[in-house]
Design a protein around this nucleic acid. Structure first.
Length: 751
DNA sequence: ATTTTCGAGATTTTT
DNA sequence: TCTCGAAAAT
C-alpha cells in the first residue's frame, strides 16, 4: 500500500477506493483530500482496469488539476493519458466542442474571459449612449451579467436560440436598462460565437437536460465521476455532475464545508451538507486527522472558525508534534524573548505603525529564516486583495528577496498573450472581439471615432467590423492611418496560409524543418508590427512571455495535422501557462488563490478591519465567509504562521483597527510581538463589538439573491438590501419593475 | 478634430 | 496595474 495513504483507516481506504455508488468525503484542511482522490483514481485504473477516458475527475482550478495529474502519473507512469482530470469548465468546453452543434453552435466557438466581457460591455454602453458610470452607480457590470444569467435560467432558449433579427427587435421592449444591456450582450456574443464562463456551465447543463441522445452518450462514458472541493460547487455545476453520473451512479465528492469561499460565485455549503438527502444511499467518510500543520496553528484556527454560525461540527486532530519542540525560534530577533521556549511555536501577530513597516518586518523575518537555513520557496504571503501586495513588493525589491506573484501577474500579465491570440484569431475567424483588440495595437490612429464609423458600416451591411474596414479602406476617414498596413498584414498571412494548406495536403512526407504554426505566428507578428511595438516599449517581461508562447506554439506545430483553428481551440483553456513551479522564490497570492496549497511558513498580511474582513461585508453570512477565508489562509501554514496588520491606510477610519479575526483566534493562542497601545486595542474591541451587534440584528434578513414569497406580489428575488435605509429591493417575477419593500415586510423564504 | 500620451487615483475574491 | 480625464501631439 502506498505510504501516502497512511491517513486512512483500513475501512476508509476500502470505501474510498472501492465503493460503488454515491460517496461523500468530508475532509478538513490538511487531511489529504487530493491524496484521497488520487488513490481512488489509481485504484480504478490500476486494479479495476477502468480506462481513464471513462473517469471524470473535476477539480476547481487548473493548478489543482495539474497537481493531481502529476501525482497520478507518478503512481501509474508518465505516458498515461489522463483524459478528464480537469476543471469543470475545461470539461464543459470539451462537451460543447463535441455536441454544441445541436444548438446550432459551431465547433470553434470562443471562450470569452472577463476582459472580453468588459470590452463588449463598453461597446454596448457606447451604443446605448451610456457612460460606464451611469450603470456602475447602482451595480457593477459584473453583477448585471451575473445576476441576469443566474436568474434567467431559460435565457438560452429565449435569447440564444432566437434569430438575430428578433433579438435586435427585443432591445426596444426590454423591461429595464439592465435587461437591455443583457440582450445586447447576448447579441454581441452570438455575433462572434463567444461563450463566457457562465455560458460554459449553463450550455453544457442545458444540452444534458434537453438532448437525451447527448446525455446518454456522456452518461455511458462517465463510469466514475469525482468532484474535488465540492463545497465550492454551484447548483448548476452540481446539476451537471448529477446528470453525468446518472447512469452509473458513481458520484464521489470531496470537500470541506469550512472552506466554502466562493458563495459569491453561486456555491453553497448546503449542497455539500445535504448530499445524503439527495442520495439516500450515500456513504459519508469524515477525515479529521490533519497532517499539515503543527497543533499550535490548528488550535488558533479552530478557535477562529468556531465563531461561525453555520458550521459542520468537526475538530481537526493534529498529527504533527508541537512546533515548540523545534530548535529555532525564528520570530524573535531580540535575545530576551528567546527565553520562553514553550511559546515559540504559536502563531505570531505583528502590529505595524504603517504598511511600509509591516512589509519591512516581513522582509526582515524572511531574511532571518533564510539565514537559519530555510528556503525561499517555503514561504507564502497571503492577502485579501491584489493591491495589498504592492507594499510587500517594494520591500522585497529593496531587500533583494526574489518573489513570484501568483494570480496577479498571471491574470493581468498575460495580456500580450491574449493580444497575440487575437491576432491569430483574425486569421481564422476575424471576429469583432479580436478585431477591436488588435486593430489599434500598435497605435494606428484608429480610435473611438473611427471605430464608431466602422460599426455603422458593419451594422448597415450586416458584416463584421473587419469586413467593414476592408470595404472602407479608401474612405477619407482612413487616410493617414495604419489601416492599410493592418489589413495587408492579415491578408498576406492568410494567403500564405491558404497556399501552405494546399502544399501540405498534397505533399507526402511532412517537412520537419517547416513548422507551419510557428511560421504563421512569426509572420503575423512581423507584418503587424506587434513584436516591434513590444520591443520599442522595452518591456522585457512581456517579450519573455511572448518567447514562451512562441515555444508552445512551435511545440504544437510539431504535430503536422494541427491547424490554426484547432490550436486556438486548445489554448483557449490553457492561457495560464503553468511552469516554473519549483522556482526558489517567495510566493505572493490572494487567499482565494492559495486554496489547496501549503507552505512551511505563511504570512497573512493586511489584517485590518475594512480589508480583512472586507469593508464590503454587509450581511452576517458574508462575515462568516470572510472568516472561512481567514481559516483557509491560516490552515495553509505547516510550521510557522505570522499575522500582520498596520495602522495608517487612512482614507476611512475603518482602516485603523486590527482585524477582529486576530482577537478571535484567542489571546492565549497568539503571541503578540508588537501590540498596539491600550487605547487602540480598546477602540478596536469596541468597533468589532458594535459591528457584531449590527450583524446579529441583521441575521434574520434575506441576502441578495434569496428567493422570497410575498402575500400580494408572490414570488420574487431580492436584488439589493439597503441596510441603512431599512428596505429591500425586490424583483418580483410578475412585476415589470423592481419594488422597494420595508425590511419589516412579511416575506417568506422559498427554495 | 481625433488620437496618444501622461499623471493622478483607486482597487474583493476567479473559472 | 488599471482606469479615467486632461493635455499634448498628430
Amino acid at each position: 500500500m502506498p505510504d501516502f495513504l497512511e491517513n486512512l483507516t483500513e475501512d476508509q481506504l476500502t470505501t474510498v477506493q472501492q465503493t460503488e455508488g454515491p460517496v461523500r468525503v468530508i475532509a478538513g484542511a490538511g487531511t489529504g483530500k487530493t491524496r484521497t482522490l488520487t488513490s481512488r483514481y489509481c485504484y480504478l485504473v490500476d486494479t479495476l482496469g477502468i480506462a481513464p477516458k471513462n473517469i471524470l475527475c473535476v477539480t476547481f482550478t487548473n493548478r489543482a488539476a495539474n497537481e493531481m495529474k502529476f501525482r497520478i502519473r507518478k503512481m501509474l507512469g508518465d505516458d498515461l493519458d489522463l483524459g478528464f482530470v480537469c476543471t469543470i469548465h475545461a470539461f464543459c468546453v470539451q462537451l460543447l466542442k463535441e455536441d454544441a452543434h445541436v444548438l446550432g453552435f459551431p465547433k470553434n466557438f470562443i471562450v470569452l474571459d472577463t476582459e472580453d466581457e468588459k470590452n463588449m460591455l463598453q461597446k454596448i454602453f457606447e451604443d446605448m449612449h451610456l457612460t460606464l458610470r451611469d450603470v456602475t452607480i447602482q451595480r457593477t457590470i459584473d453583477e448585471v451579467l451575473e445576476t441576469m444569467k443566474m436568474r434567467a435560467d431559460s435565457y438560452i432558449q429565449e435569447f440564444y436560440l432566437l434569430d438575430n433579427e428578433k433579438l435586435i427587435e427585443s432591445f426596444s421592449h426590454a423591461s429595464s436598462r439592465e435587461e437591455e444591456i443583457f440582450l445586447r450582450y447576448i447579441y454581441e456574443q452570438k455575433k462572434c460565437f463567444g461563450l463566457d464562463f457562465n455560458d460554459l456551465i449553463n450550455f453544457a447543463g442545458y444540452i444534458l437536460d434537453h438532448y437525451p441522445d447527448v446525455r446518454d452518450k456522456w452518461q455511458n462514458r462517465c463510469e466514475y465521476v469525482m468532484v474535488d472541493e465540492f463545497q465550492d460547487v454551484s447548483a448548476k455545476q452540481y446539476g451537471i455532475a448529477k446528470s453525468l453520473s446518472g447512469l452509473h451512479r458513481n458520484l464521489f465528492i470531496v470537500g470541506d464545508p469550512d472552506q466554502t469561499i466562493y458563495t459569491w460565485r453561486g456555491s453553497h455549503m448546503k449542497l455539500f451538507l445535504d448530499f445524503d438527502k439527495e442520495y439516500k444511499d450515500a456513504k459519508t467518510i469524515v477525515l479529521n486527522r490533519n497532517y499539515r500543520s503543527v497543533p499550535e496553528i490548528l488550535t488558533a484556527s479552530d478557535e477562529l472558525i468556531a465563531h461561525n454560525k453555520l458550521k459542520y461540527p468537526k475538530t481537526l486532530v493534529a498529527h504533527r508534534r508541537p512546533a515548540s519542540e523545534l530548535a529555532v525560534p525564528i520570530w524573535f530577533t531580540d535575545e530576551g524573548s528567546k527565553n520562553i521556549p514553550e511559546r515559540y511555536g504559536r502563531p505570531v501577530w505583528y502590529h505595524a505603525p504603517n504598511p511600509k513597516d509591516e512589509a519591512e518586518w516581513v522582509a526582515k523575518m524572511i531574511q532571518a529564516y533564510i539565514t537559519s537555513g530555510g528556503r525561499l520557496s517555503d514561504i507564502g504571503i497571503l492577502y485579501r486583495a491584489h493591491y495589498l501586495s504592492r507594499a510587500i513588493e517594494e520591500a522585497f525589491v529593496k531587500a533583494k528577496i526574489p518573489y513570484t506573484i501568483y494570480s496577479g501577474i498571471a491574470f493581468y500579465g498575460r495580456r500580450e498573450i491574449k493580444d497575440i491570440v487575437c491576432y491569430l484569431r483574425m486569421l481564422t475567424q476575424a471576429d469583432d472581439v479580436a478585431f477591436r483588440r488588435t486593430v489599434n495595437l500598435p497605435a494606428r490612429k484608429i480610435g473611438k471615432k473611427k471605430l464608431e464609423y466602422l460599426a455603422n458600416v458593419a451594422e448597415k451591411n450586416h458584416i463584421s467590423l473587419y469586413d467593414a474596414l476592408k470595404v472602407s479602406l479608401e474612405d477619407t476617414e482612413f487616410r493617414g492611418t495604419g489601416a492599410k498596413r493592418y489589413v495587408n498584414a492579415i491578408e498576406t498571412v492568410r494567403e500564405r496560409m491558404e497556399k501552405q494548406r494546399k502544399v501540405i495536403s498534397f505533399a507526402m512526407p511532412f517537412d520537419k524543418d517547416h513548422n507551419f504554426l510557428a511560421d504563421i505566428l512569426q509572420q503575423i507578428m512581423d507584418l503587424s508590427g506587434y513584436e516591434e511595438y513590444l520591443r520599442v516599449q522595452g518591456d522585457q517581461e512581456r517579450l519573455d512571455n511572448i518567447a514562451e508562447f512562441k515555444r508552445s506554439v512551435a511545440a504544437a506545430g510539431e504535430d503536422p495535422d494541427m491547424t490554426l483553428s484547432e490550436f486556438l481551440n486548445e489554448i483557449a483553456l490553457f492561457t495560464n501557462l503553468d511552469k516554473e513551479e519549483q522556482q526558489d522564490t517567495v510566493k505572493l497570492m490572494t487567499v482565494h488563490t492559495a486554496k489547496g496549497m501549503e507552505y512551511p511558513m505563511v504570512f497573512i498580511i493586511g489584517l485590518s478591519e475594512g480589508i480583512f474582513p472586507s469593508r464590503k461585508v454587509v450581511m452576517p453570512e458574508e462575515m462568516d465567509e470572510e472568516r472561512r477565508l481567514m481559516y483557509v489562509a491560516m490552515t495553509r501554514a505547516k510550521t510557522y504562521l505570522a499575522l500582520t496588520d498596520s495602522e495608517g491606510i487612512a482614507n476611512d477610519n475603518l482602516f485603523k483597527y486590527p482585524s477582529r479575526f486576530i482577537a478571535e483566534c484567542g489571546e492565549e493562542n497568539i503571541i503578540s510581538l508588537n501590540p498596539p497601545d491600550k487605547e487602540l486595542t480598546e477602540k478596536a474591541k469596541q468597533f468589532a463589538a458594535i459591528d457584531e451587534e449590527r450583524l446579529s440584528k441583521l441575521s434574520d434578513l434575506y441576502a441578495v439573491g434569496t428567493r422570497v414569497l410575498h402575500e400580494v406580489f408572490r414570488e420574487g428575488t431580492v436584488t439589493a438590501v439597503d441596510v441603512k435605509g431599512g428596505f429591500y429591493t425586490i424583483q418580483f417575477d410578475n412585476l415589470p419593475t423592481q419594488r422597494n419593500l420595508r425590511i419589516a415586510a412579511k416575506l417568506e423564504r422559498i427554495e
